[in-house]
Simulated scan of single mutants.
Amino acid sequence: MRDRDEPRTHGRLPPETTLSLLSNEVRASILWQLSEARGGDGPPPTLSFSELKALAAPEADSSRFNYHLQELVGPYVERVETEEQWGNASRPIPRMAGDPEVGYQLTPEGTTLIRTIRAWSAEAATDRELAIDHDCDYCGTTLTARYENAILAIECPGCEYLYDYNLTPPGVLTGVDDEFGDVDDADVLDRAAEYNRTVRLAFARGVCPYCGNGVDAEFQDPEDTGYPRGDRRAALIRRGCSHCGNKDNLTVGELLLREPRVISFCLDNGMDVTRTPIWEIEFAATDRHTTVRSTDPWAVAVDVTFGDDRLTLVVDESVTVVEEEGGA
């Protein structure tokens, strides 16, 4: 018997049980067709038993289809009154499957599940070299960019410094008509930059971007992380989520992109860090302006400079800004 404080899904089932419900083609088709019916507009659609069966499993007998449908009701599918009777309301009712007054729609969990599958699916090859107009801050070599296996990697071919390496959904490559290959490289990089900034700033602010849980933080020696050219990194902050297992590493400069004083200081000097790709923000993409003042406990200073104008922030063991110099 499971302890009461062990994980439960929104539908009140253990996560491994909800995953086991997906091991059937009819059930997978039910979820997919409920998602397909929605398209991109309007509230979640409600399909009757007969409509859903015709779309998801027209060859299955009604009793078999009903069995698989009811296995999904609760965690992934909601049984509701018809739209004609209740308008757009979604209201659970205790009726039997197949009743003509009953309709079915995805629960929030079901919607999220199918949305995630859609987000990370592509109908065409996505591996792609991308033209990028930015030079390495260390050696001046023009950077390279490549999207491969759902990873966007931006690095310097001259000194092998890695500027960006992020899990990025293939939607960044998609045009307005859902066609791959008709989006130019600059637009792909702009989309990727916006997406990855959102993900990384959520981590910087202490929130898991995937499940909303609070995340822990600790300083790490870059040489212990496996990053290439660890000798050019002063310190990394590991953020980890104990709920969904998501983890990421941030430079101290990236962490500071959450700070209003940094945003304002940069804007006063002509750089909008809320829109500039992180790989183009030198104090965030590199540690050229980062100094480790101590490691026991950790205290790390980052200089944000524009000519003679300088703002220095010091981050302590708790990844909190504890000192500020300059930037008046």
Rank of each mutant, 00 (worst) to 15 (best):
S318H: 14
D127G: 02
S48Q: 05
G158P: 09
I151F: 14
A285S: 15
G98A: 11
F180S: 05
E194K: 06
G226A: 11
F306L: 13
T116P: 00
S264Y: 01
D221I: 06
R232T: 06
G140A: 05
E282T: 13
V322H: 03
I237F: 07
G245A: 12
H10Q: 13
D268R: 15
D309L: 05
Q85E: 15
N213S: 14
P15V: 02
S90I: 15
F265Y: 12
I278S: 04
I263W: 01
E317W: 09
A125Q: 11
A125W: 07
M271C: 01
E78P: 02
L256H: 01
V319G: 10
L256V: 00
N149A: 14
D133H: 12
R38F: 10
N213P: 00
V26Y: 00
V252D: 06
T291Y: 09
H289F: 08
E280G: 04
G230D: 14
L19R: 09
G140D: 07
P157I: 08
E280L: 10
D316N: 13
R275Q: 11
N246S: 10
M96G: 05
M96F: 11
P222K: 07
L250I: 04
G171K: 08
E109K: 04
Y67T: 03
E325M: 09
P100L: 08
G103P: 07
L69F: 04
I30D: 02
T144K: 15
G307W: 10
R27F: 08
R79P: 02
N149H: 15
R4L: 14
Y147P: 00
V172Q: 00
L55W: 00
L52I: 04
V319Q: 15
V172L: 05
R95I: 03
Y195E: 05
D133P: 02
D99R: 04
V300F: 08
R293A: 04
G240T: 12
R258T: 09
L72F: 07
R310K: 12
N246D: 10
E71R: 07
T286Q: 06
E84L: 10
E129T: 09
G171T: 09
R115L: 08
D308E: 10
L69I: 02
T17D: 13
Y67D: 07
V207K: 11
P58D: 06
E83C: 09
R146V: 09
G103W: 14
V292R: 03
L13S: 05
A37N: 03
T17V: 15
G74K: 12
K53P: 00
P92S: 13
I281P: 01
G158K: 03
V262H: 04
S20I: 00
S318G: 13
G42N: 04
A235R: 08
H243I: 14
H68C: 00
T168G: 13
W298I: 00
P157E: 14
R38Y: 09
V188C: 05
A285Y: 07
R239E: 02
A54D: 06
P14D: 01
E280K: 15
D164K: 15
E81N: 09
G171C: 05
G40R: 09
F203Y: 10
